[in-house]
C-alpha cells in the first residue's frame, strides 16, 4: 500500500479513537493490528517489545483514573487499552514501511518539493550517527577528565553544534552528488498510487466504525 496513504489512514483512525471512549473498539483495533503484523512476519522480538513498552505509561493512566477519575474505572480501562491500540496501530505503519518509502511517495506523488523530502530523509539517516556521537562525546570527555552526564546541558549543546556542522556538510554532500533544488530527477524506485489504495483506506475506515455501533 502507498506509504503516505497508509500513514494518513493510520492517523485518521488514531485521532478517531482519541475521541471515542470504547474498550471493545480499542481491542478490535489491537487485534486487527496484531494479525496484520503477524501476516507481515514482524519478528517476535519486536512484538514482545510492543507488549512491554506501553505497560508503564498505560498502567500509570489506569491507576490515576482509578484514584481520581470522576467517571468511574471504565475510563481507566479505555485509556489503558487505547494506549496499546496507539502503539500497535502505529506499528502497522512503522514496522512495515520505512521513512524512505514515505519520502519517495511524498516527492513523487504528492509534489512535495524534493528538497523537503530529501532534506528530512538525510537528516533522519544521521540518527545512528547522532546516537554514536552522543556516546562518543561522553567517552572523549572522560579521556579528558570530564564526566558528562546524560542531563548535562553541555552535552546537548555539543550535539546541536555538531548537528549544525553536519547540516552544512550534508547539504554540500548532496549538492556535490548532483542534487539541485527544484530540479527534476529520475527515479529508480517509482512509487505509485492505485485505486486499490483508496479502496483499502475506505474499507478499514468503515470497518472501524462497526464496533462503535455494535457495542
Amino acid at each position: 500500500m502507498n506509504a503516505a496513504i497508509k500513514l494518513f489512514m493510520v492517523i485518521v483512525i488514531g485521532v478517531e479513537i482519541s475521541f471515542i471512549q470504547s474498550v471493545p473498539l480499542n481491542l478490535c483495533i489491537l487485534a486487527v493490528s496484531c494479525c496484520y503484523l503477524l501476516i507481515k512476519r514482524v519478528s517476535i522480538k519486536s512484538l514482545l517489545y510492543l507488549i512491554i513498552y506501553p505497560i508503564i505509561p498505560a498502567t500509570g493512566l489506569l491507576v490515576s483514573q482509578l484514584f481520581y477519575g470522576i467517571q468511574g474505572p471504565i475510563i481507566g480501562w479505555v485509556l489503558f487499552t487505547r494506549l496499546f491500540a496507539y502503539v500497535w496501530l502505529g506499528a502497522t505503519f512503522t514496522m512495515t514501511t520505512n521513512i524512505k518509502d514515505l519520502a519517495f511517495t511524498l516527492e513523487q506523488n504528492f509534489r512535495l518539493p524534493s528538497k523537503f523530502a530529501y532534506g528530512v530523509l538525510t537528516a533522519f539517516n544521521l540518527v545512528p550517527r547522532i546516537i554514536t556521537e552522543v556516546q562518543t562525546i561522553r567517552h572523549a570527555s572522560l579521556m579528558r577528565g570530564v564526566t558528562m552526564q546524560l542531563w548535562s546541558p553541555k552535552l546537548y549543546f555539543k550535539a546541536i553544534l555538531a548537528a549544525i556542522n553536519w547540516s552544512s556538510d550534508l547539504s554540500q554532500a548532496m549538492i556535490s552528488h548532483g542534487f539541485v533544488e527544484d530540479a527534476p530527477r529520475t527515479h529508480v524506485e517509482k512509487t505509485t498510487i492505485r485505486w486499490s489504495d483508496f479502496a483499502i483506506f475506505a474499507f478499514w475506515l468503515i470497518l472501524v466504525q462497526v464496533p462503535i455501533f455494535v457495542f
Partner: peptide
C-alpha cells in the same frame, strides 16, 4: 568533488542508495 573527510560526504544509509541517489540527480535513465 571528493571531500577530504569522507564522513562529510554521505547522505544515505548504504553504499548502493548513495550512488543511486547521485545518479538520479544526474537524471540518468533508471
Amino acid at each position: 568533488m571528493m571531500f577530504q573527510n569522507p564522513n562529510q560526504q554521505f547522505t544515505m544509509t548504504n553504499v548502493y542508495d548513495e550512488i543511486q541517489f547521485a545518479l538520479e540527480n544526474r537524471q540518468l535513465d533508471p
